[in-house]
Amino acid sequence: MSKALERREKLRSDLILAAERMIADRGLAGLKTRDLAREIGCANGAVYNLVADVDELILRVGSRTLLRLDDALSAAENAAVPSPRGTLVRIAIAYCDFAAENLELWRALFEHRMAADKIVPDWSIDDQMQPFRHIYKPLALLLPKRSPEELGITARSLFSAVHGMVALGLEQKLVAVPLPALRDEIAVLVRAMLDGLVARAD
């Protein structure tokens, strides 16, 4: 790799890390390319020599957030748990804890909207789908008669239910729920959903 290319890659990495810090501190709405350029020591226009546009920059930060989420879910999945139900409960609570600990970066995953005519790149879609495998595997053990397509839908439905509780529970308004209580309620919800799914499958 040439020196010029090395410098560009270093600057690009610095840009993504700076954007990550800015979103963590200010939220997605506080992301300003002029401030990023100043922080990494380049001209404002040079930012667009490092990434195609702000959408790509946000997606790159999102991929880093998703990778850390994936690590957290892997740790929950690999912990000593006696059953697929227990695994899914731990995964759900790990998701809640990750969101609470990385609130603005987690929110940015869902707040970011691209223009209707823009296509989300394949690398970003792949990164977004990775965490679902943690839900899919224990569900497959609980519901062995379901097809892969059915399991995929069930995994997304279970995620949506947990995500909704986390999103509302962590909202810093009237519906905010203390984290210990939110964790308990999520565990109750996941167990109830799984009991119902298994009962219907019998």
Rank of each mutant, 00 (worst) to 15 (best):
K10Y: 10
I16Y: 07
A140Y: 04
V198Y: 15
F159T: 08
L17D: 11
H163N: 10
V177G: 08
L103N: 03
A115Y: 07
L174A: 14
S74G: 05
T65M: 07
K145N: 12
S124M: 01
A92G: 02
R146A: 11
E150R: 14
I119F: 14
A108F: 09
R26Q: 09
I91T: 01
A94P: 05
R38D: 06
A140T: 05
H163Y: 13
G62Y: 10
V188H: 13
M165T: 02
K137R: 09
L179Q: 08
M165Y: 09
R7W: 11
E104T: 11
R113H: 07
I135Y: 15
I16C: 03
S160W: 14
W106V: 03
A52L: 01
I16G: 01
A75K: 06
A80Y: 02
L189S: 11
L182D: 07
M114E: 04
L142D: 03
D14C: 06
A37I: 01
S147V: 12
I119M: 15
M22D: 10
W106T: 00
E20N: 06
L59V: 14
I91C: 03
A187Y: 04
R200H: 15
S160A: 11
L189P: 07
S63W: 06
E185N: 04
G41F: 12
R64E: 14
D97C: 03
P148L: 05
L66M: 13
A94Y: 11
T33N: 02
E149N: 10
M129A: 05
L17W: 11
E149P: 06
P121C: 06
D126Y: 05
I125D: 06
V120E: 15
E101T: 08
R7N: 08
E150I: 03
E9C: 06
R85C: 00
A181P: 00
Q172A: 14
K145D: 14
L142N: 10
L179K: 10
R26D: 06
L69E: 14
P82Y: 08
C42S: 00
A201L: 13
W106R: 01
A4G: 08
Y48N: 03
A46N: 04
D25V: 00
S157D: 14
V166F: 05
A176F: 09
V166H: 08
L57W: 02
R60H: 13
I186W: 08
S63E: 15
A52T: 09
